[in-house]
């Protein structure tokens, strides 16, 4: 039996676990942590992968298990939820501020649903340099150091920076 208070505590422990690839974000801020609930006496944590091939999923599961174990919850199950699919819109405002403070440009609004329309022109985003705030930035690549990031260069300070992609 997990009491309501204990469940609230478990939720706050899970909410503090950080993303292995962007450790300035908690899993809650990233929007990966979907639910912390009780099922038949055990704590059940539900997470949603950011990308199908996200290699950090196993580490996230382990970290959640270990941190909850350290906090005294010895019966913990981490479940995967595939639907609805993760969206960059789920990154919280606090998460967006943390990204910007660490030199990573936060995502704009995710594309609306419906058929994906072919677009052969360069991607247009209202991106500002997270270091100097200039808006004269250039897309270097839609693919960056992790699956969720694109790479930009700032025309003012000339620094290269990551932008979390809209998905």
């Amino acid at each position: 039996m997990v009491t309501t208070t204990a469940l609230a505590d478990a939720r706050s422990v899970a909410a503090q676990v950080t993303d292995p690839e962007m450790p300035m974000l908690t899993l809650e801020d990233l929007g990966v942590l979907r639910d912390v609930a009780e099922d038949d006496g055990r704590v059940v944590v539900t997470i949603t992968p950011t990308y199908s091939g996200c290699p950090a999923m196993a580490t996230m599961r382990d970290d959640l298990q270990h941190r909850l174990l350290d906090a005294g919850y010895d019966d913990v199950q981490v479940r995967v939820s595939l639907s609805p699919a993760w969206s960059s819109d789920w990154i919280t405002d606090r998460g967006r501020r943390a990204l910007a403070e660490h030199g990573i440009s936060p995502p704009g609004a995710a594309p609306a649903g419906g058929p994906v329309v072919l677009d052969l022109l360069p991607t247009r985003r209202a991106v500002r340099c997270p270091r100097c705030g200039a808006d004269g930035v250039r897309l270097v690549s839609e693919f960056g150091a992790t699956a969720c990031k694109a790479v930009y260069t700032c025309g003012a300070c000339l620094e290269t920076f990551d932008h979390v992609k809209e998905i």
């Binding site: 990308y51 199908s52 595939l82 639907s83 699919a85 693919f143």
Partner: peptide, 17 residues
């Protein structure tokens, strides 16, 4: 259905590239 809905978002980037 869930695997496909997720994959759509990813493959859209591949097609654009």
């Amino acid at each position: 259905s869930a695997i496909a809905a997720k994959g759509v978002k990813e493959v859209a980037y591949h097609r654009t590239y």
